[in-house]
Design a protein around this nucleic acid. Structure first.
Lengths: 357, 357
DNA sequence: CTGAAAGCGCTAACAG
DNA sequence: CTGTTAGCGCTTTCAG
């Protein structure tokens, strides 16, 4: 690549000791080259890029011209090593495929990008082992902050994260003992409130379906919330009215069928996931059950599908975008050394009563 | 943190000149500390971690013990600078919120993670300007490879990417002039084939709805495919039977209503997105139109929703996961210096004929 | 199989 | 406002 200098540029090749960019294979331009062409020292280039206020307009412009002329792309790997700041936030979610996590990441990435931070994203899978392995390699990249969505970490994972000494935000559930910071809502309270709503509507034989809770403490919390609401109302709790199922439309229909086989008189079903709920609703359409008269259907998350079906589905609305935005703000605030940072934010939830109950 | 050495460990503090890890604030353990405790040189620790085959089992174990004892986390930022390899692949998609992109990223991340690579993920937004800005800052992080989903890049963006000298894969559309490598399918052919199917089914007044095509060449390609199929069949093409709409269930219903207002005798509608198609189907339910008899409905992408509704929705199936997996393989192969890498992979598509047409 | 020396490209710290 | 000096923590040579 040639270096078409603007006429009258402030070039001053004082010390041509180092080879020019053209001489090096790959043609990678370094800060030193830019500095020489701009007639300033490398550190001034560095400052013109990172702290423009510290540099005179004159130098700033010379640097800008030199960068434009050379097509210089700065090397943030070197910068990160020198400054001990990567401007990277790591985020680990169970999977990208679940739109519920995606909604959080959308707003988090946008907030980070606006401040010059980037997102390093990984899928932890469902087990503590895969989660630990992933977090461990992420930490080696020295992110300035960490966001976690998913289960409570294993003790050794937790220890490793604490040891890293960076701000950490968990976003999956309002837990008692966050590793560091927390922004979420109570899955227990939400499930309990929704179940309570079903009871208030007059439903008495209420089934519950959710993803497997073995490695999923949010699913467990929702299940406990469902049970607590029944117990509070003096209704019988039966394991026979509870099923585990993978997420999916078809799976929601199958879950409902399975519950109906065990109890033909089931009059409502709480499916802890809108996609499951929509699947159950479609199953009702097919089998000629009227919703909400013959069968009440309720979901969780308030995804788009919940308000698109007819009847529309009663569900728990959770501000997923808020979680991402606030998580980014918390991390950035702590990186900035602000001390007034909340360590625990409850974003709440609300029950969206629609036509399916 | 204490350093509980295993009994009989091969410790040998020969040169206690450097401060121990405990003495440094933050307690960050460096490779040098591990080396001293293991009784080897730093480079042997490095090799034990990166190229275990080059190290004797004896040293390897000593290193492993020292790492376990100290809780050492290696610094890949320093490693990346020294080796000029980050083991990071950057990926830029329009938004994380669209499950269509998520499906690709799921498999790409999994493939990368399995090889010790990580994903740096960003949302480019819809315009060339935001895309350029994002790619520019990503490049400064020196990724070893780049994945792009979205529009054809602006010329200056393209130049910047080429200049980076790293493998680049585009995944959005089978284009003529890829920047470097390409793995996708023909949006034009797919839309044309689906429209042809509608014509074969006997539909004659076929509407078309898709996201705005101003900054979206895939939407444009689909629109051209729709028009080409009509023209091939000798059917009239009318702008009045074409609408632009944001994605969404409600928007799909509204798009169908808008089309029907312009042409009451519309007998089918191709909605370039399953969510739109499902929304249109729900609208038919509400307005008492029978599908597929009064109105044929077809979608695009074969998302879960397409086979969950009743009637199920005819759509174009696209192997999104394949695209991600193959993209990762292409990038990794080129990083490995393998020369036999395909530069252009057509993953194809197929029409899933279901009950809505 | 192991080690010593020499950077990778940038920025912190200090001095002017 | 600008420059000099000295690393950041690791890996690449190149010798043994």
């Amino acid at each position: 690549m040639s270096l078409p200098l603007a006429p009258g540029s402030t070039e001053s090749r004082v010390a041509p000791s180092a080879p020019d960019a053209q001489d090096r294979p790959g043609g990678q331009v370094r800060m030193e080259d830019v500095a020489r062409i701009a007639g300033v020292s490398p550190i001034t280039v560095s400052r013109a890029l990172s702290k423009p206020d510290m540099v005179s307009p004159r130098s700033r412009e010379a640097v800008a011209r030199a960068i434009a002329a050379t097509g210089y792309v700065r090397n943030l790997v070197a910068g990160s090593l020198a400054s001990q700041k990567t401007h990277v936030v790591a985020a680990v979610v169970p999977t990208f495929a679940n739109p519920v996590f995606a909604a959080t990441l959308v707003s988090m990435e946008a907030a980070l990008q606006a401040k010059g931070f980037h997102l390093m994203l990984g899928q932890s899978g469902a087990t503590p082992q895969t989660q630990h392995a992933l977090i461990s390699t992420f930490l080696a990249r020295r992110p300035d902050g960490f966001f976690l969505h998913g289960n409570r970490c294993a003790p050794e994972t937790r220890r490793m994260l604490v040891q890293a000494g960076i701000p950490i935000v968990e976003g999956a559930n309002l837990r008692d003992d966050p590793i560091d910071m927390l922004v979420s809502f109570s899955n227990f309270d939400a499930a309990k409130a929704l179940t309570r709503h079903l009871i208030d509507r007059g439903y008495r034989r209420i089934g519950f379906a959710s993803p497997p809770w073995r490695h999923n403490d949010r699913a467990r919390a929702r299940r406990r919330g469902y049970i607590a609401a029944l117990a509070d109302a003096g209704l019988a709790v039966s394991e026979r009215r509870i099923v585990e199922t993978p997420l999916g439309f078809r799976e929601g229909g199958e879950a409902l069928r399975a519950l109906l086989e065990r109890d033909k008189r089931l009059d409502a079903c709480f499916l802890a996931g809108d996609v499951l709920a929509a699947g159950a609703l479609f199953e009702c359409h097919r089998s000629g059950r009227r919703v909400p008269d013959d069968m009440g259907i309720a979901g969780f998350d308030d995804q788009d599908i919940a308000s698109a079906t007819s009847p529309q589905i009663t569900t728990v609305h959770v501000p997923r975008q808020e979680i991402g935005r606030i998580a980014a703000e918390m991390i950035l605030a702590r990186i900035d050394g602000r001390a007034d940072v909340d360590r625990r934010v409850d974003v709440g939830f609300d029950i969206r009563v629609r036509q399916s109950t």
